[in-house]
Design a binder for these strands. Structure first.
Lengths: 314, 314
DNA sequence: CTGAAAGCGCTTACAG
DNA sequence: CTGAAAGCGCTTACAG
């Protein structure tokens, strides 16, 4: 059995409050007492029970990270692993615990969040990939649960803290880039209709097309679930249609890989190098240097952080 | 303030033990009482505090998943996201909490594990990518901390529960495959020397080369840290050396992508299709259909689970 | 079937 | 600077 604060107190010949003080506010303790207690802690290999601390403190140093993806999407998408590894690292540096939640249908997620928080399982939440309808967030707001969104929330953006890149600008830049290079029929593999990401990208694409109305660009948009398979299927559909696009802009790298495969399938040559201005090495990620150049170009350039970050209780 | 078990008891006009029973053993409660209490729970929106439950139960339903990668490796590697998403899903299905730990130097990890467990932060641990020297595991064994390894532990494989694919067989198969196809100088981008994965792969490769000594195959092994960058650098070194290999076998997909890039850099044509027997669609993952075919081939074929899974306390 | 008692391992005021 | 008291929100035996 692991030793408790009482064991330490007994061995050191002090009260358990003093032991607690040694751990939490050592400066308030007489140096001789400090020494005695610390020796006892060493001897007994004492580690304060974090559950008991959380209970006594009435706060948990735990942050939940939620990603509304199916296991399959999570497995595929780099966004997931990047985000979770960074959050995880930051949490452990700051003595927080990170808990991961995935693979839940978005409808239930609101109740899940409330439960997690009310059960005091998490002290706060990081939510990702918000949907257009903010239903699951409403309860978080009304229950005053500390949370932040990675991505633009669908409603009440003034009240809801979030961080995001400027996807409207990303869509605009990518489209302008393709139009500049002479493309007039542009495929656009967007994300799911209910994601704000898709809304923002579309807004940028549409605005750009309108601004270039003289060139009469034709945007061929298709909805996807951001998986490789969807990228393949939708791109193949576009590429084998009468109005075959001459360029495709995708909402995600994974889609771009699907596009590449569909191009092979459709018997089309695929450019080795990005179709665009001179290549800068910092523009491309290490992963798919031969894919998704345009999307990445846009996002990197347009990716200034926006959104509101408010203080939270914890 | 969230309502507690005492609030519910008061409102329902029963003792808090009865409320506790309604939650944990409803069959032991009189149906009228049950009804009263459940109504009170509804009205007060009561959620049992999980921290208090853990403390009273003297067990935490929390599993730690540890991946000894740097943030950069984690971000890149698909193994990470696959494993964590699956573990996460399984945990939530079984009412467990998953906590993620990454980016720590392996030396400190032993102490980390002990601390996590002794602080009762986790009830058990899933460790990945074991190193040859089992130092960090020894303390887990002696402290009787429940844990399991994904990958073959370096020592005391009889005592330590683990699951793994048969990497020795994978190395053997991949090498045999390449020799069968006429290759005599075979590059072998292995993982870090201190990982058992690397040991196992090398054993298979070496054994296979020995078995085919008549053909005099030459194995050109290079150590990598399993990153894209290392794959590129080491492959380029091999490909620009006088004894340039005619085929390369890599320990990981990411290395294979690095190899591909180095091939381009070295001005070598890269086969579109796998060099091997007829392509079966189930043999390839969705990600890099044009890469890493040989490795995947080997692993899929050789990937029968081995290792020992013993029961744990929780 | 239900409640009074004791306890899980810690911390926060409050005296001294 | 230190300790006695009370409490965090729950559960586990034990009576009745």
């Amino acid at each position: 059995m692991a030793s408790t604060i009482n064991d330490v107190a007994k061995l050191a010949g002090v009260s358990r409050q003093t032991v607690s003080r040694v751990i939490n506010e050592p400066t308030l303790v007489n140096s001789k007492t400090l020494d005695k207690v610390q020796r006892a802690i060493k001897i007994l290999d004492y580690h304060p029970n974090i559950t008991a601390r959380f209970l006594a403190n009435k706060r948990v140093k735990t942050i939940g990270l939620y990603m509304p993806f199916s296991a399959d999407q999570v497995r595929q998408n780099l966004f997931f692993s990047t985000l979770s590894s960074v959050v995880c690292q930051f949490c452990s540096q700051h003595d927080y615990i990170m808990q991961l939640f995935t693979s839940l249908t978005r409808e239930d997620s609101g109740r899940l969040f409330a439960r997690l928080y009310k059960e005091r399982q998490v002290g706060g939440l990081i939510l990702t990939c918000p949907s257009v309808s903010n239903e699951e967030l409403i309860s978080l707001l009304t229950e005053k649960i500390p949370f932040i969104i990675v991505g633009r929330p669908g409603l009440q953006t003034e009240q809801i803290p979030y961080v995001d890149v400027d996807n409207v600008e990303a869509g605009r830049l990518a489209t302008a880039h393709l139009i500049d290079y002479g493309h007039r029929r542009i495929g656009f593999l967007n994300g799911p209709a209910d994601m704000t990401l898709s809304e923002d990208l579309r807004q940028g694409v549409t605005a750009c097309a309108a601004a270039h109305s003289a060139e009469q660009p034709l945007i061929l948009e298709a909805e996807t679930d951001l998986t490789f398979a969807a990228g393949y299927v939708e791109a193949l559909r576009l590429l084998t249609s009468p109005k075959r696009p001459t360029a495709i802009f995708t909402a995600d790298d994974l889609l771009a890989i699907g596009v590449k495969k569909s191009g092979r399938r459709a018997g089309l040559a695929h450019p080795r190098r990005p179709v665009g201005p001179q290549r800068r090495s910092d523009r491309l990620g290490p992963y798919f240097p031969w894919c998704a150049d345009l999307y990445r170009y846009a996002v990197r350039t347009a990716g200034r952080y926006c959104g509101r970050i408010s203080g939270t209780q914890h």
